[in-house]
Nucleic acid binder design. Structure first.
Lengths: 123, 123
DNA sequence: TCGAATCGCTTACAGCTGTAATCGAAAGGG
DNA sequence: CCCTTTCGATTACAGCTGTAAGCGATTCGA
């Protein structure tokens, strides 16, 4: 369950996660094309690669495929987060918070949300 | 100032940051070799690539080079952190905290450290 | 002085990434 | 029935990554 997904592939995963229902390649491309300006061919390549590595699955619908995520966004994101914090901060989150705070990467709303989370955790 | 450094290259950067003084290729390899089991040749390749992309600089010392970081760890780490939070959490840190909390990625000590940081921030 | 060790540089090579074009098969429109 | 569109699959190709080996030059030890 330790899938590596590249930046471009992630874009496609986000489209699938965001749709909430299976998509054809063309539909996925529509959802992405605007932002990224990719050709349909590129989206198809991404879908093939994602299918090959088990990140999406597809069901046949006549001659085409309906693609849906094979992994949950939370699972993927949790994995990547742990990996990231491990790689740069020795597995501790606090130095990451410190670094972002020091560079003004946090606004008041975000800070309040984190405090609320932590308070919740301790109860 | 938007350097991409690969995993293997980062290992070498950590050795240089950790040393606190310039290192020869052989010294860097010594500091890394144990963990990673790389050959000297591999470390040399990493140093060349890092030099080519401006992440390390080198001074000649007779026939060899003394390598030192050309960027500060905090700067690099801050950049990567912002990029990461942007990529997966829309630029907000709180959902990352939530995710890690939900998977037991936080221990009490880490939580306390974060709370202290945030309290500091508001003063 | 002469061979061994060491230096940085160049080359190697497979796998991953970004970004498609092309192809043969099938389906759908007229 | 044929032409165009559309599908997934295959192929392309350069740049990055991980992991070195080899090379010519230099230096160092005997």
């Amino acid at each position: 369950m330790d899938l590596r997904i590249s930046d471009a592939e992630l874009e496609v995963m986000e489209a699938l996660w965001g749709a909430g229902h299976p998509l054809t390649a063309a539909e996925a491309a529509d959802r992405i094309g605007a932002e990224r300006g990719w050709s349909l061919a590129t989206v198809k390549t991404m879908l093939s690669r994602l299918a090959a590595k088990g990140a999406v699955k597809h069901r046949e619908d006549g001659r085409r495929f309906l693609y849906s995520p094979a992994i949950k966004r939370e699972a993927y994101v949790g994995n990547e987060s742990r990996r990231f914090v491990e790689r740069l901060f020795g597995g501790r989150l606090s130095p990451l918070v410190a670094r972002l705070a020091e560079e003004d990467g946090l606004d008041d709303e975000d800070i309040a949300a984190i405090e609320a989370l932590l308070k919740e955790l301790k109860s």
